[in-house]
Structure formats: structure tokens, C-alpha cells
């Protein structure tokens, strides 16, 4: 039964918590440490996931359909075809690519030094369109439909890549979730064990408390709070290490591979760190209440 308590009780509870934290410092260090490790791995998992997500999204959004028109279609005729592309379901972006622009694109893909220079005198490329779909999953259907339109010679897109990427990200998400759940459970277990050990170390006190007429909640509070503090301290450690190492790592990686679309947005990171801290507190509360519930039936 919960009843609001006067300030001096809160004061007392904090005194007890710090007394216990100080006395069982080794044990508490171990608990906070294991929580920190769990949350650290969990954090790595989360960072990995949002980065894979971001990379996948970037790749996905880059999947485009190149539509080459028949050679005898003039630029004006080509422009008049644009509405018929737009009508196709799922199509989001339609960009006209003139033969000159097509050549530039080719140069971009193959590198400036390549032997394309001679082509610019008599450009053999047809008029073309670059088409993107709103959802990368619609690429296949849209491409098939475009191919059937009159005046379209040839349709190209990275067939299969999209599907494979989706399968991969799906798996990464599932495995990541399983790992995270396992780690959370182990963190809860460790905090429960620690609370139980603290509880064991303090059973004499608890016994005396009960003899002099302490209410159950009065006995419980310090333990719950202790679990919460341990969880929070562990999370703080994990976040600190993550913050430092992730910052360095992304900087080094982006120096090496400049186009890698890593998540460095500080608001995204803040959310992850916030989640980790919240989880630390939650895990601490769950862990300690498990053992308190089990061992406080005095």
C-alpha cells in the first residue's frame, strides 16, 4: 500500500541508500559495471541499426530507373511524354536527361579520365528519363509498366539489389531486436542479483527494522532507489563511453570513406542516449523490485 511520505522519510531513505552504496562499494561497482556493459552493447546495437537503416535508406532512395527512349524521338517529343510517366502509380520523380547530360552522368560513373571524350563530338546517347519511385519496393512494377509505353526503347534499374537490401535490413532489425532483448534481460537479472546480495548483506538491518515496526514500503524504498541509482550510473557510464568512441569512430570513418552516410546528427544521438539512460533507470527499477518482492516477505 503506497502512502505519501513526509520529507524526513525521504531524507532518511537517501541516507540509507548512500550508506549502503558506500558500504557495498565493490558489489555496487560490479552491478553498475555490468549494467554499463549491457547498455553499452545495447547502445552499439542501436547505433549500428540506425546507421544501417540510414545507409539502406540512402541506397534505396538512390535506386532509380533509367528510361532510354527510341533513337528517332526528338527532344520535343520526349518532353511531351513526361505526363505519361507521371501517371504511372508509385512514380515520384521524373527528370529529363538530354544526351549531353547523359554523357556527363556516364563520365561521373566511370571517372573523368576514361575514354569518353571522343564521344562528345557525336553523342550516340538517346534522350532519356531518370525516374524515382516513392517507395523503392515499387521499382519493379513501375519499370515493367514504363517499358510497355510507346517510344520507350530500354529500361534499366539495379534489378534485385533493392529486394536484397530489404531482406538484409529486415534481418538486421530482427537479429538486433533479439540481441537487445537478451541484453536487457541479462541487465535486469544482474541488478536483481545485486539487490539480492545487498539485501542479504543488510538482512540484519531489515530484521531490526521489522522488529521496531517499519512498514514494508519503508523497508523497500531504499532498495528500489538503490537499483535505480545503479541502473542510472551504469547507463551514464555506457553513454559516456559510447559518446566518446562513436564521435571518434565516425570522424575517422568519414575521413576514410567520405560518401558513407553515417548518422552524426546530434539530435538523433541525444534520443539514443536518452533512451539508454531511461532504460538504465527502468532496468534498475525492474531488477530491484524483482528481488525486493521475492525477499521482503518478512
Amino acid at each position: 500500500m503506497y502512502t505519501p511520505m513526509p520529507l524526513r522519510k525521504i531524507n532518511y531513505i537517501f541516507q540509507e541508500v548512500f550508506r549502503s552504496l558506500k558500504r557495498n562499494s565493490l558489489l555496487n561497482f560490479a552491478a553498475a559495471g555490468t549494467t554499463a556493459i549491457s547498455l553499452f552493447v545495447l547502445g552499439i546495437g542501436m547505433l549500428l541499426m540506425i546507421n544501417i537503416d540510414q545507409i539502406a535508406n540512402t541506397v534505396e532512395s538512390n535506386v532509380e530507373i533509367m528510361v532510354y527512349l527510341e533513337d528517332d524521338i526528338s527532344e520535343n517529343e520526349a518532353h511531351s511524354m513526361e505526363p505519361s510517366f507521371n501517371r504511372i502509380s508509385g512514380v515520384k520523380e521524373v527528370v529529363f536527361v538530354s544526351p549531353d547530360e547523359g554523357l556527363e552522368l556516364l563520365e561521373g560513373w566511370m571517372g573523368k579520365g576514361s575514354d569518353l571524350g571522343s564521344l562528345s563530338e557525336e553523342n550516340p546517347l538517346p534522350n532519356a528519363y531518370k525516374i524515382k519511385t516513392g517507395d523503392p519496393r515499387e521499382v519493379g512494377a513501375a519499370a515493367a509498366e514504363i517499358e510497355r509505353l510507346p517510344g520507350v526503347d530500354n529500361v534499366r534499374y539495379e534489378q534485385g539489389v533493392v529486394e536484397k537490401l530489404f531482406a538484409l535490413t529486415e534481418w538486421v532489425r530482427i537479429i538486433g531486436l533479439i540481441v537487445i532483448v537478451l541484453l536487457a534481460v541479462s541487465a535486469i537479472f544482474l541488478i536483481a542479483t545485486t539487490t539480492r546480495l545487498t539485501f542479504y548483506a543488510r538482512r540484519k538491518e531489515i530484521n531490526i527494522m521489522k522488529y521496531v515496526g517499519a512498514t514494508d514500503w519503508f523497508v523497500r524504498w531504499p532498495f528500489l532507489l538503490e537499483g535505480v541509482i545503479l541502473g542510472f550510473v551504469g547507463a551514464l557510464l555506457a553513454v559516456g563511453v559510447l559518446y566518446l568512441s562513436y564521435g571518434t569512430l565516425t570522424m575517422k570513418l568519414q575521413q576514410a570513406i567520405t560518401f558513407l552516410p553515417l548518422v552524426t546528427d546530434s539530435s538523433d544521438m541525444l534520443i539514443i542516449y536518452g533512451i539508454l539512460l531511461g532504460l538504465g533507470v527502468l532496468l534498475g527499477a525492474i531488477g530491484s523490485s524483482i528481488s525486493v518482492r521475492k525477499y521482503l516477505r518478512v
Binding site: M5, P6, R8, V212, A214
Partner: peptide
């Protein structure tokens, strides 16, 4: 004092 604190006595 412990016994007094347990029953919520003030300083």
C-alpha cells in the same frame, strides 16, 4: 536513533 527513524521521527 535507527528505531526512531524507522517510525518516521524527526531530527
Amino acid at each position: 536513533a535507527f528505531a526512531m527513524k524507522v517510525v518516521g521521527a524527526g531530527r
